[in-house]
Design a protein around this nucleic acid. Sequence first.
DNA 1: TTCTTATTTAGAATAATTCTAATCTATTGA
DNA 2: TCAATAGATTAGAATTATTCTAAATAAGAA
Lengths: 143, 143
Amino acid sequence: MVNRKRADGDSESRAAARLRAAGLRPTRQRAALAGLLFKGSDRHVSAEALHTEATKVGIKVSLATIYNTLHQFTEAGLLQQVVVDASRCYFDTNVGDHQHFYCPDEETLIDIPGNDIKVSGWPQAPKGTAVERIDVIVRLKRI
Amino acid sequence: MVNRKRADGDSESRAAARLRAAGLRPTRQRAALAGLLFKGSDRHVSAEALHTEATKVGIKVSLATIYNTLHQFTEAGLLQQVVVDASRCYFDTNVGDHQHFYCPDEETLIDIPGNDIKVSGWPQAPKGTAVERIDVIVRLKRI
DNA sequence: TTCTTATTTAGAATAATTCTAATCTATTGA
DNA sequence: TCAATAGATTAGAATTATTCTAAATAAGAA
């Protein structure tokens, strides 16, 4: 019998390979969190929400490690930060070219494919700087 | 002789009229802060920075009032909030159609006129919602 | 194994913001 | 003009999200 703790052991070992490729030591916590984050379709998570979710499925991890991990993943290009309002920040597993709808009422983000939305005509970046990235938030209201 | 505390009494009384028009009682603190905010050209201020500035020019006002006032002004359409990263939020005296460059190194915002920059092609807003506003942050990096 | 170094952890510290309850002040109307 | 009242301001406590710290643990190399 294979040494395996859970049914999703596969997604964790895939995660481990992915971490190694990104230059991150695949520790138990990082592999487990990567397993959660990259298992299904794209997600937008807050640190607190991920901590709650991890705890719920039996991953023992501290909130400090959640923050460390989210930032390391972001550094490594596995995640992207989306800031929608003061002190409400999400980590997005979709790191491709895309933008977001934001519903303040439900505090949820919805992806807008980069192929759909276009930004054009910004002025030249100030001397000594270059454009790193362009973030668009299409803010919604309930009607 | 006219009853006037400072040379900028005029900008304060203009501010008072503006507050009244916005449905806000023109108290001493609000008039003084409006005087600071709307005197010159457009600005991007943080709560802390405005408090420091107010204190420096002799306006006696608590930080709580700064926050209250900035939010009330925003409600009233005199200011607009710009969120650039987790827990760094600015209030913008330019409430017209425009967007921003953001330099993370210097933590400064630069206006991009709405005539210059264009966003197009976003999908239909989800059922029951409408687009309230579109915010674009052109993030810069030092080169 | 054992060693070394990176990682994780609990809990303290920090920072920005909001809340609270008491005090004060602008406006209203007598 | 003045008192009443509703709204505004205040200091300081509370809250929230996040980061820091120093000790304990675990991964990878020898």
